[in-house]
Nucleic acid binder design. Structure first.
Lengths: 337, 337
DNA sequence: CCGCGTCGTGAAAGCGGTTTCTCGTGTCTG
DNA sequence: CAGACACGAGAAACCGCTTTCACGACGCGG
């Protein structure tokens, strides 16, 4: 049951200093108002016994852990790593730590995981691109305080930070059409992924606005491997339907695709132009450098903390935020043949 | 003081089910042996009140949090992200979560941070490349159980996982000399960094073994920006001392360096060969693809968990592990002019 | 000189669980 | 049919800290 962690308890310090635990507590928290000599004695005892208060016990008594859950679908994805990095650094400034959970792209357990992690923290950041809206709405109510990343709904009373995927993908499409491409292919992200739907919608709107452009679609995923796997389908479409450019779900898929295409003897952008999405940190250094929609992930993470923090401290409900990606034109796109 | 988290307490469930808290506890933990009807009643009440046990209170009573601290010098560094990812996934399989702390490359606070984070968890993974040995030894004693990454010392009773930087850098140097390079330059990592010292030592040994080779050194750091900043010095050395190849501290620095050199009109590997270290996930896709020493970071993370876990559960002390990097020859190195 | 604040500190009641110990009940044995 | 015993469940102590409340001592004004 109990374990000697080596660290002394408040009671031991109290005894050693000849005072009550209450006094020790007050001294340790700077709430002590009595005789300075007593405080000094307590501090001396604490030092001598190398006492450090149990975070756990404090948290229980205080009803606050100073930890925040951070749930992402895949921690191996650079975008989420960047968000986490931004979040963690911002939270640390206020003395909070991030407790991480990786739903490992298995959306079925996301809700359970979220509850579990929330129960250990004061709040939670939820990145659940593929959770069905209804489930999310229900879940969100039990998770407060929380902030959502890349999901927002009028039925959810939580601040949300999102990327305007629709605009981002449209900008990429426009860039391609300006280069003369007319037959495009969208290499889709994970099925059921909300952020994938936004991109699809954006492209549909784009086609409506410019009927001379067509966009085929092929299922892929969110990882490098998914991009590689989609290469044959893209190569076929080049032959069959004469597509000249592919918009990948994200940078990872784009890189995979470019490499897959190379293995099939197709060069980028010579034979096909390829765009990514996210502008992960290394996108500009790839061969060819990736034309992509740049998303300030670290900033998203930092901003997520800011919102969560103000909500935790004074219950202030902030407005939703939407980041507009910036078009980054690089070497992976070129004029249509 | 107390906050209505919305979730019911064990006492409420007990009252609702007409039993004692003890019984509820037993049912919730599968330790109940009495009449099945009672258990059913408890479960029904729990569901009805949507009861979920307070992790905090449980942890306090049990003396175990099922969380593990993870301290790294910089969460924005892809290598640490990969270790974290591997660690987190492995720990999750055993129901543990990682609590992260980023010492933000400020080594002075590392010890405090480590203690702080350790006090919230059952154990801790420590990645403190720049902490002075003496401080580390003292700290380690108070942090048990812990595992160290990239630091090992006979004076520390904790399993350590490390990379054989010495061998890795020697392999890179050998590769370069086989290509005909004789005058090399090492672009150093952060001052005081242990893993930097290993590389330096490796190169020194290499020079002793093959006196025809010389290695100059220039201070840089661990980031992309540090690599860019080191470019002028490397370029000068190309002119002044006729170096023909540069070994960068890691892949990030290598990429920065390559780009910095390009701005100065030097091409890689045409004018200078450049090697990295780590083989971060994108190293092969850069322009040019990076010749580097490949380190299985995800595996290091996973293995770190395994050791920590077996130590937590049955106190078994495992042996230290050292991963030998694998030489990955790619396009950033070529024959000496 | 007595009553009334004020001040410094301690006792004790939480926070929400777990677990030991105890006790009543029902069953089995001699 | 009495006594031993297994069994089911509750009372209470405990994990380590915070905080309210109470209380004794002291200083002051009437």
């Amino acid at each position: 049951m109990s374990q000697r962690t080596g660290s002394a308890t408040i009671a031991e310090v109290a005894k050693h200093a000849g005072v009550s635990p209450a006094t020790v507590s007050r001294v340790m928290n700077g709430r002590f108002v009595g005789e300075p000599a007593v405080a000094d004695r307590v501090r001396a005892s604490a030092r001598e016994l190398s006492y450090s208060p149990s975070h756990l016990a404090r948290s229980l008594a205080l009803g606050r852990t100073k930890a925040v859950g951070f749930l992402v679908p895949d921690l191996a994805n650079p975008s989420f790593q960047e968000i986490l990095s931004g979040f963690s650094k911002a939270a640390a400034r206020d003395g909070y730590r991030a407790l991480i959970a990786d739903s490992a792209e298995s959306s079925s357990e996301e809700a359970l995981l979220a509850s579990e992690i929330r129960s250990r923290c004061d709040a939670v950041v939820l990145c659940a691109p593929r959770m069905p809206e209804a489930e999310l709405v229900e879940l969100a109510a039990t998770l407060q305080p929380l902030v959502l990343i890349n999901r927002s709904s009028p039925r959810i009373a939580a601040p949300s930070l999102s990327i305007n995927y629709q605009v981002g993908i449209k900008n990429l499409a426009r860039h391609l059409t300006e280069l003369g491409h007319r037959r495009l292919m969208y290499v889709e992200g994970p099925e059921e992924s909300a952020s994938n739907s936004y991109r699809v919608r954006g492209l549909e709107e784009f086609c409506v606005a410019d009927p001379s452009v067509t966009v085929e679609r092929v299922r892929a995923g969110a990882t490098f491997e998914d991009g590689v796997a989609a290469a044959p389908a893209v190569a076929r479409a080049v032959q069959a339907s004469g597509i000249t450019a592919a918009l990948a779900f994200n940078d990872l898929v784009a890189v995979g695709l470019i490499n897959g295409l190379a293995d099939l003897g197709l060069s980028v952008p010579g034979d096909v132009s390829v765009t990514g999405f996210d502008d992960i940190r290394f996108a500009r250094f790839f061969a060819p450098p990736l034309t992509t929609a740049s998303v300030p992930h670290e900033e998203v993470g930092a901003e997520a903390w800011l919102r969560l923090h103000s909500f935790i401290t004074d219950q202030s409900r902030s407005f939703d935020l939407m980041f507009a990606p910036r078009l980054e034109v690089r070497g992976s796109t070129g004029p249509a043949a």
